Computed example of a mutant assay.
Amino acid sequence: MSFNNILVPVDGSETSYAAIEKAADLAKAFNSKVTVVQVLTLDPYIAAEYITASHTNELIERARTSLLKTLDEAKAKFAEYGVTVETQLLEGQVIQREIVKAAEAAKADIIVIGSHGRTGFKKLVLGSVAQSILAEGEVPVLIVRK
């Protein structure tokens, strides 16, 4: 199996940095194209106001700026490993759905994602993006734990 296109969702956490390291190893081994993504989640009520407002919503713009900074940090981390990447800021209401759509659009051969490894009540309450991507997507997923 060859990994020509690797998608790496990040959130700025230590576990996403562990995923970056693993994805960089794969990219170097297979000479892969790497796309790093992060999702700006939009509440449907806020998003409707944002889309129709004549002025930009300051909170959304601050969130966007923060997420773009995280993408830049991920890009720099990949550069430390000698891997050049593309970055995309995705927008939507459900994180895992946007990641799955991005993987399909990029024709990704694999998604490399960090997982916090929550179990029990924390997993029930907080959910698991990685688990949801496994359930919703068709693209193989490599889950990396710190």
Rank of each mutant, 00 (worst) to 15 (best):
90 L>W: 04
39 V>N: 03
53 A>M: 09
108 A>C: 07
28 K>C: 03
44 P>Y: 04
133 I>G: 00
7 L>I: 12
22 K>N: 10
120 G>K: 06
75 K>H: 06
57 N>E: 12
14 E>M: 04
63 A>H: 11
8 V>D: 01
129 V>E: 03
143 I>D: 02
50 Y>T: 13
58 E>A: 15
73 E>C: 01
4 N>H: 14
79 A>N: 08
37 V>H: 01
115 S>T: 15
106 A>T: 11
80 E>V: 10
50 Y>R: 14
43 D>Y: 06
42 L>P: 00
29 A>D: 10
19 A>N: 05
16 S>Q: 03
120 G>E: 05
27 A>C: 05
20 I>R: 01
124 L>I: 05
47 A>K: 10
109 D>N: 12
114 G>W: 04
56 T>Y: 09
87 T>Y: 08
114 G>I: 08
144 V>Q: 01
79 A>R: 10
64 R>E: 15
126 L>Y: 14
12 G>L: 07
102 A>D: 01
98 E>G: 05
4 N>R: 15
116 H>P: 00
1 M>Q: 11
143 I>H: 04
9 P>G: 02
24 A>W: 00
122 K>V: 13
133 I>W: 03
129 V>Y: 09
128 S>E: 03
104 E>M: 09
122 K>H: 09
126 L>D: 02
97 R>H: 10
62 R>I: 11
84 T>Y: 02
44 P>V: 07
129 V>S: 01
98 E>S: 13
86 E>L: 02
138 E>D: 14
136 E>D: 14
31 N>L: 08
142 L>R: 02
51 I>F: 15
35 T>D: 11
22 K>F: 06
119 T>N: 09
38 Q>Y: 05
134 L>F: 08
87 T>A: 06
24 A>N: 01
37 V>F: 02
61 E>H: 08
146 K>T: 12
10 V>A: 04
128 S>C: 07
58 E>T: 06
24 A>L: 05
108 A>K: 05
71 L>H: 09
65 T>W: 02
33 K>D: 15
96 Q>D: 14
40 L>W: 02
51 I>W: 07
145 R>Y: 11
67 L>P: 03
136 E>T: 11
61 E>Y: 05
79 A>E: 15
86 E>G: 10
144 V>S: 02
77 K>F: 09
135 A>H: 09
19 A>V: 04
71 L>M: 10
95 I>Y: 12
98 E>Q: 11
41 T>G: 03
104 E>T: 13
39 V>W: 04
119 T>I: 12
81 Y>W: 10
93 Q>E: 15
62 R>D: 15
135 A>N: 14
130 A>W: 01
117 G>S: 05
146 K>M: 07
89 L>R: 06
73 E>N: 14
54 S>L: 07
26 L>W: 02
126 L>E: 01
45 Y>C: 00
73 E>M: 12
52 T>Q: 13
55 H>R: 12
75 K>I: 00
97 R>V: 10
81 Y>D: 07
107 K>S: 13
31 N>R: 06
18 A>N: 04
41 T>V: 08
89 L>E: 10
127 G>K: 06
80 E>T: 14
37 V>A: 06
53 A>D: 14
60 I>H: 09
41 T>A: 09
43 D>I: 01
139 V>P: 00
67 L>K: 11
112 V>L: 03
133 I>A: 08
54 S>H: 06
109 D>R: 04
49 E>S: 15
36 V>Q: 10
139 V>C: 11
108 A>G: 07
141 V>W: 01
105 A>E: 11
